[in-house]
């Protein structure tokens, strides 16, 4: 007679401390990594003194310079100027980039006609364009917003295009079987399936926007965080220049985190192909 074996437990173990903390371990590790990097920087610079302090400021100098800028009231004005230009250019890039990507990705005709100029514009060095933009649009916000738009629109459009093209054809087939016409296939299948990649493009667009802001304010600028980096570098206040650069990075990180949040809300079903821990 064969033995029958029964499970002795049918429920998972009660939560232990290590199980409760498990989701946060990785975040602790990242925090520790950042602090360790700052510490190494501080030790090499401050105690061993490898580099000349005028050329490579210590972490303490950078923080002090930033707080000085904040206290003189300079910082917030520049920050709002840059942030608002970046935001306007970025929103324009989303509003234009997503439909352009959808069109190029879903229509053979549109791609045959619109593809060549699109890729030509993409491969154009957009930094070289900035002096021309200043000549055409003046020293105001116009050329700054436009260069942000130019920087951000391409990753958004290209990812949207690839997203639409990569839609699983068997999903489209299934939808057609159950009576979906071209419009339903687009709105109920293709757009949803492309959403994760569209949001990836938008996240890349956020980072590109910050680059665009700096380019725009480097050339023909008199305000903003990019201009501040340019001026402080010229005045040999490298601690302030490095600090403002980090500030731009922080703004980009917050923006990308917001897009990730949107991804988690609107595409919670999507599991990225990243290795599982």
């Amino acid at each position: 007679m064969a033995e029958t074996v029964q499970a002795s437990r049918t429920r998972p173990r009660p939560p232990t401390l290590s199980r409760v903390l498990a989701p946060f371990t990785w975040k602790f590790a990242v925090l520790a990594e950042v602090l360790a990097l700052l510490l190494i920087w501080h030790v090499i610079q401050g105690m061993i003194g490898v580099w000349d302090r005028r050329f490579v400021p210590a972490p303490g100098d950078v923080i002090r310079a930033l707080s000085d800028l904040y206290q003189t009231g300079d910082l917030m004005g520049h920050l709002t100027y840059s942030a608002s230009n970046a935001a306007v250019g970025f929103v324009l890039a989303v509003v234009v980039g997503v439909p352009v990507g959808l069109l190029l990705g879903s229509s053979r005709w549109a791609y045959d006609i619109g593809g060549p100029p699109f890729w030509a514009m993409y491969s154009m060095p957009r930094i070289a364009f900035q002096p021309l933009l200043v000549l055409w649009m003046g020293f105001g916000s116009g050329p700054k917003i436009f260069i942000v738009f130019l920087m951000a629109v391409f990753p958004i459009a290209i990812n949207t295009m690839d997203g639409i093209r990569g839609v699983d054809r068997s999903l489209v087939k299934a939808a057609r079987v159950y009576g979906a016409g071209p419009v339903d296939v687009f709105f109920k299948v293709q757009l949803w399936a492309a959403l994760p990649l569209i949001l990836t493009g938008i996240r890349m667009g956020v980072a590109r926007s910050m680059i665009g802001v700096v380019i725009g304010e480097f050339i023909g600028g008199s305000q903003g965080l990019g201009f501040l980096i340019y001026r402080k570098s010229g005045e040999f206040e490298l601690d302030a220049a490095v600090g403002v650069t980090f500030l731009l990075v922080a703004i980009a990180l917050v923006g990308m985190a917001l897009v990730n949040l949107a991804k988690r809300v609107f595409a919670s079903w999507y599991v990225e192909g990243a290795p599982q821990s």
Binding site: L171, K173, A175, V177, Y178, K188, Y270
Partner: peptide
């Protein structure tokens, strides 16, 4: 109606909403 080898379920829809698709379009 067709049942597919690779299931062809919409990954952004729950079980209920996937089944409902069979009704939605009609």
């Amino acid at each position: 109606a067709v049942v597919f080898q690779d299931y062809a379920l919409l990954p952004w829809r729950t079980v209920v909403d996937n089944i409902r698709f069979g009704l939605e379009m009609q």
